[in-house]
Computed example of a mutant assay.
Amino acid sequence: MISLPKTYWKIPEKEDDFLPSACLLLEKRRELATVEQALAAKKEEFQMKMEELQDRREELERKEGQLKQAILKFDKFLKESNWICIQNTAASKTLELGQIKLAALNLFQMVAKHRKLSTDVPPDDTEAQLDLVQLCIGDLIDILANFRKSEPTPVSQPEPMTESQSELESR
């Protein structure tokens, strides 16, 4: 009998060690196919998530564009609305100035007519008109002050008596 070295007399530790290498190769191929299927499923899931994220990104970009347009429209509305407000304020102030100038012209014409002065002051020279009105008012104040000085001081009159007071005096 031939004696073999002890290294060839190895006892298998696991059941897999009894399987021939062709079976092991088939089993490894099956495991590889399972792993590849799982990898393909993960790739497909990843691809679907990427497509979903791309759709969401496109939707966000579309909404961002809409928001920018809305902001531009609102900015236009605010503008210059401010411009309408400025125009209204200017119109109001212009009207008020016109009324003041007409009132000054009216006072000037009344003073000129009363004093029989020439009205050679231009109608748009409000300052000169008001200067003449001021002179007239100053003259009237002086006249009134002189009149009050020359007026005698009034003597106070006794108050009329009531019936009960006159009865008391007669007693």
Score class of each variant (00 low, 15 high):
Met1Asn: 14
Lys6Val: 11
Thr7Pro: 02
Tyr8Val: 04
Trp9Tyr: 14
Lys10Leu: 14
Lys10Glu: 12
Glu13Ile: 10
Lys14Asp: 08
Asp16Trp: 13
Phe18Leu: 13
Pro20Gln: 12
Ser21Pro: 09
Cys23His: 13
Leu26Met: 07
Glu27Gln: 12
Lys28Thr: 05
Arg30Asp: 08
Ala33His: 02
Leu39Arg: 13
Ala41Ile: 09
Lys42Phe: 11
Lys42Ser: 15
Lys42Asn: 13
Glu44Leu: 06
Glu45Lys: 00
Glu45Met: 01
Phe46His: 15
Glu51Met: 03
Gln54Met: 05
Asp55Gln: 13
Asp55Gly: 09
Arg56Cys: 08
Arg57Lys: 15
Glu59Trp: 03
Leu60Pro: 01
Leu60Ser: 01
Arg62Glu: 04
Arg62Val: 01
Glu64Tyr: 08
Glu64Asn: 12
Gln66Glu: 10
Lys68Phe: 02
Lys68Pro: 01
Ile71Val: 05
Lys76Asn: 14
Leu78Cys: 09
Lys79Ser: 13
Asn82Met: 07
Ile86Arg: 03
Gln87Leu: 08
Ala91Thr: 10
Ser92Lys: 04
Lys93Ala: 03
Lys93Cys: 02
Leu95Phe: 06
Glu96Asn: 05
Glu96Trp: 02
Gln99Gly: 05
Ala104Leu: 09
Ala104His: 08
Asn106Leu: 07
Asn106Thr: 09
Phe108Thr: 00
Phe108Ala: 00
Gln109Thr: 10
Val111Cys: 00
His114Cys: 15
His114Ser: 15
Pro122Lys: 02
Asp124His: 02
Asp125Asn: 04
Asp125Ser: 01
Thr126Glu: 05
Ala128Gln: 06
Ala128Glu: 05
Gln129Ile: 00
Gln129Phe: 00
Val133Thr: 01
Leu135Glu: 13
Leu135Ile: 10
Leu140Trp: 03
Asp142Val: 02
Ile143Ser: 15
Asn146Glu: 06
Arg148Leu: 10
Lys149His: 05
Pro152Ala: 01
Thr153Phe: 04
Pro154Asn: 05
Ser156Arg: 12
Glu159Met: 07
Ser164Leu: 12
Ser164Cys: 07
Gln165Asn: 01
Gln165Ala: 03
Gln165Glu: 07
Ser170Arg: 12
Ser170Thr: 11
